[in-house]
């Protein structure tokens, strides 16, 4: 087909086609929807239960009240859902494509290869979890009595987007290393268990781990920093740090992908 459209329009149209195709493919497994809804609700119930153990005697956890901690748990649930909607179907696939050599065909397509490997697939099964996470954030906000103004909401949404961008970059960087190491599927499992750290306020961890999860593995920026913004107690410093980190992470993922492609020697060579 000779589509002469250039620029963003072409990418938008491609994305629409990609996602309608993968939606049609996923609809073959409708029973999965029921299982995923049940699994999401059970996971959330378990997470709430475990969190409630820390508040059994009315204490605070790392200086956060129960309602405030709900916002953190909600954001973490949302990111889990996001991972199963976009990150796992695409970046998990990337590892397989390197293993069996079908990445060659992707690289030949007249479209940006990072765009293709990051957004080709879309799985609706993470949506229930995203919705539940979003709902829990709202519940936590309303019950904690936080009333963020329009500026606060805007800042929180920006930080939320930064968190998503950082998570994507971490996943992408790990998946892209499969070009060198081929089998890194388990590395993404390590990342998944690390993201579990963000279920609780970072201030609940001992100081050394707090530093580790803020400065070395930026888990704090995924859930804690946006939660602080939603609760109306963030500072310009954290906003700037989060935005800067997201930008650096995205640039790193781009540079690494280009370097990886220069080293890519196809499956049989």
């Amino acid at each position: 087909m000779m589509d002469r459209r250039r620029g963003l329009g072409r990418y938008g149209l491609s994305l629409l086609r990609f996602w309608s195709v993968s939606l049609a493919a996923q609809m073959e497994y409708q029973l999965n929807l029921i299982i995923e809804v049940v699994a999401s609700i059970a996971t959330l119930a378990g997470g709430l239960f475990t969190l409630s153990l820390f508040y059994a005697h009315g204490q605070r956890l790392g200086g956060w009240s129960w309602e405030e901690a709900l916002v953190v748990l909600g954001l973490s649930t949302f990111l889990d859902g996001f991972s199963s909607t976009l990150l796992r179907p695409n970046l998990g696939e990337l590892v397989k494509q390197v293993q069996n050599g079908s990445l060659d065909f992707v690289l030949l397509k007249p479209i940006d290869s990072q765009f293709w490997v990051s957004l080709r697939n879309w799985s609706p099964w993470g949506m229930p979890e995203m919705a539940l996470g979003f709902g829990l954030v709202l519940v936590g906000l309303v019950r904690s009595g936080a009333r963020p103004g329009p500026g606060g909401v805007l800042a929180a949404l920006l930080l939320w987007a930064c968190g998503v961008a950082i998570l994507y970059s971490l996943w992408f960087i790990l998946a892209a290393t499969s070009i060198w190491f081929v089998k890194v599927w388990n590395a993404t499992e390590v990342l998944r268990s690390l993201v579990g750290v963000g279920r609780y306020p970072i201030s609940a961890y001992p100081p050394a781990l707090r530093l580790l999860f803020t400065a070395v593995v930026p888990i704090a920026f995924l859930t804690n920093v946006p939660a602080e913004a939603l609760l109306g107690r963030t500072t310009p410093f954290w906003c700037a740090a989060s935005a800067g980190l997201a930008l650096v992470a995205l640039i790193c993922s781009r540079l690494l992908w280009r370097m990886a492609l220069r080293h890519y020697t196809s499956a049989s060579s």
Binding site: H57, L61, S193, V197, Y200, A204, L209
Partner: peptide, 19 residues
């Protein structure tokens, strides 16, 4: 094996939790 370090993280939270 590294992805199974969850109990250590839970220890980190529990050891400082007043609950």
């Amino acid at each position: 094996a590294l992805s199974g370090v969850m109990p250590l993280l839970m220890y980190a939270v529990w050891s400082g939790a007043p609950a």
